[in-house]
Each structure stands twice: as C-alpha cells, then as structure tokens.
Write a protein that binds this DNA or RNA. Structure first.
Lengths: 220, 220
DNA sequence: CCTACCGATCGGTAGG
DNA sequence: CCTACCGATCGGTAGG
C-alpha cells in the first residue's frame, strides 16, 4: 500500500517580493503573501464548488474576510486569480509527483511506478486540499488564450512523466494500447472520478487505484 | 468495422401540441415545434462552445433568427432550455444505442457488443451533430436539483445497458476490474475525449475504438 | 486594503 | 413571436 504524500505549499516564489529577487522581510510583506494565498485558496474552493462564473469575486472576497473590491489589489482580474489557482495546483502536483517517483527509485518495476502515479493522481484529484487540479481540469475554458497555453504546458509536463512507465509496460506486453493514446484514456478515466467519487462512498483511494490497475493492465 | 447510426431527432413528442395529446395540425403549430427545435439546436451548439454562463440567451436568440426576448416564449427560463438540450440528447443517444444493440442480436459475443457500444458512444460524443451529450456531461451543474435528478436518471438508463456486457466480459476473464467500477472508469476515459479529440487529428473514431478496447480488455 | 461607485450585461417580463 | 424595458448582479476602478 502506498502512503499519500501531503501536498505542501511550494509557491512562495510567486509572491511579489520573491519575484523581485529578495527574501520577504517586513511583516507587511509577509502578510501580503499570506493574504494572496488566502485568496487563492478561497478561490480554488469556490471555483470548484460553483464554477468560475458561478463564484463571484465578492464571494471570494467574503470567504477571505475582505471587502468586495480588495481581491483586485492582489490580482489584476478575476481571470488572473483563476490562473493563479491553476499555477499553484500544477506546481504542487508536479513537485509531489516528482517526490513520489524519486522515492520509488529508477529501478522500480514499471507496474509499481504506474501504481504510485495513479495513487498520487487520485490524491491530487480527491484527497485533502484537492480543489486546485479539478479547477484546472474543468475551468480552463475561462482563461485567456495566453493563460491557457501556459497551463497546457504545465499539464503536459506533469503527464509527460508518465510516458516512460507506459512505454515500459507496453514493451513488457502489459499494456496493449499505444502509449500516447493510453495516456489520454487513462487520464480521462482518472480525471472523471472527480464527477462521481464520494469520500463517504464505499471505495477508498487505495481500492480505486487497485481497480484502475486491474482495468488498464489486467493485474495489480 | 461498425457503421455509425445517424442520430435522428425523435422528440416531436415534446412539443406543446403533442403533449396535449392530439397530433399537430395547423401550420402555426408545426412551425412552433420547428422554432423550438431550432432554439434547442442553437443552444446546444452555443452551450458547448461557450458554456452555459458564457452563452447568453441573446446569443441563442440571434443564432435562431429571433429577437432577444423570444426564447422565453418557448422556454420558461434559460435553465429550462438547457434541460431541453440534455433531454433531447439523452433521448436520441438512448434510442440509437438500443438500435445498435438490437442490430447485433442477443447472441453476439460480449467483446463485439462492447466494441459496438464504445463505437456508438464515440459517435455520440464526437460525431456529426454531437453537441448535446457533451453539454449534458459538462454543464449539468447549471441545472436545478429537480432537473439534475431527471438527467441523472436518463444517464443511468443509458449506462445500465452496458452492464450485461461488462459482466459477461468479467465472467470470461477479459475484464479484470469489478464491472461497476469499470463502467465508471470506461465512461470517464471515453467522455474525456471531448476535451482532446480533434476531427482533424490523426485518429479516426474507429481507431479510437480499437485503442480503447485494447486498453480495457487487452484485445480488440 | 476599504469606501463608494460606475458601466455593462443579462435573465426575464408586460403588453401587444 | 416583437418591442421596450426593468432590476439585479457583477467585474472592475478611483481615491484614499
């Protein structure tokens, strides 16, 4: 059984102070970064629950204990806030995925690597603090074209890490579809779980992982 | 190879006149049904392209050659129009799916039935006139709770038709996951193709079907 | 960050 | 079905 890695925040580098290349110093600066993170978290929650159009910037401000106009002190537009949610989500997910693969080691059998990748992806989609990636998956249409390109590139990088494993399984005869197409179908199968999975339901994330491996490779 | 069944309109029974239990007679009545269908088609297209919130009733009216207030002569609300799109889509898809299964016959091998079901579902998702079901899959959150229940019941009926085939494959050892969970994953894999499939891309719907069967059952 | 506000859009309706 | 319109909501901003 695989222990889920907690998805810790890693995006302090996105704060204005850090972007300018010096470490955050004053209490005001640190607090500004905190308020920004609070907004991103509240937006992730509300965008996931109500959709981008259904969640107003007033909703997000209220959930962050701010007045209605204040989010625009931190973000140029509602879309920029959406983009920040997705960037934060992809940054966390890509980092934790890399940790999972590194912990396994390069010589781990391909089916162990696939199991770890699937289990980690379920954690990203359905685990604690899992609003960010579902927002990316289901609200990307609301981005500007330039933002969309950026998010697509981050998503491609995340998914590319699966390809060596899928190709190895294909070579071993455990995966019969073409790896590139298999990748699309597999991510579809997993990503769709956001629509039907209930944490109060009968299945745990481990059981979900087991069933997914049975379906795709015929064994666990 | 499987020929795709055209998804012909079957919802004349939903017109006001038919609901009253007598056949449409006057030109005005027939035209009223036509205008209604035009609205549903335009709404399907625009809801798919721009999302429920992104497509205004004014957009839909203009695409149907009407003035801005006119859709509300045919539908009580924008949500009722969305609901009609989904009902129309589910009605067509369920009927054409039943025809596909009937054409195969009850004694067809389970893997042939699965291939036919997958191929038909790709046609519903990606073929000509395929706006309705993607709208249902991706915009159901905008329905009222009562409408949502209705649509969920129709979707359950559509998916239930897959279960005998999945159970037969499981019994034959060609499907290793539990059929109920396999159903969820398989529909996820197929439904997600709406997000990435391009009809100008390298893959045809037949090739897609072949790859899906390879992934799920290890053979075609 | 808050206060106070603007301009635009939108779903929906009355009356014919 | 069209005309003409209302009321509400919403993203965003100026000025502090």
């Amino acid at each position: 059984m695989l222990r889920a890695m907690p998805l810790t925040a890693v995006s302090a580098a996105a704060s204005p102070a850090a972007r300018r290349g010096r470490p955050p110093k004053t209490a005001a600066e640190r607090d500004e970064g905190n308020r920004r993170q609070v907004l991103i978290g509240a937006a992730a929650r509300l965008f996931r629950t109500k959709g981008f159009d259904g969640a107003s910037t007033r909703d997000i401000a209220a959930a962050s204990d701010m007045q209605s106009g204040s989010p625009f002190y931190f973000f140029q537009s509602k879309q920029a806030l959406l983009h920040a949610v997705m960037q934060e989500g992809m940054s966390r997910a890509t980092q934790s995925q890399a940790l999972v693969l590194a912990a396994l080691g390069a010589r781990a059998p391909a089916r162990d690597r696939l199991r770890a990748l699937v289990r980690h992806h379920f954690e990203v989609l359905l685990g604690a603090d899992s609003d960010f990636i579902p927002v990316m998956l289901y609200e990307w249409r609301s981005l500007t074209p330039a933002q969309r390109q950026d998010v697509a590139a981050r998503k491609d990088a995340y998914e590319a890490a699966w390809m060596p494993t899928l190709r190895a399984l294909r070579r071993a005869g455990r995966l019969r579809a073409r790896p590139e197409v298999a990748r699309l179908f597999i991510f579809g199968a997993l990503n769709w779980s956001v629509q039907w999975f209930s944490s109060r339901g009968a299945l745990s994330l481990d059981e979900l992982t087991e069933q997914a491996l049975l379906l795709f490779t015929g064994d666990q």
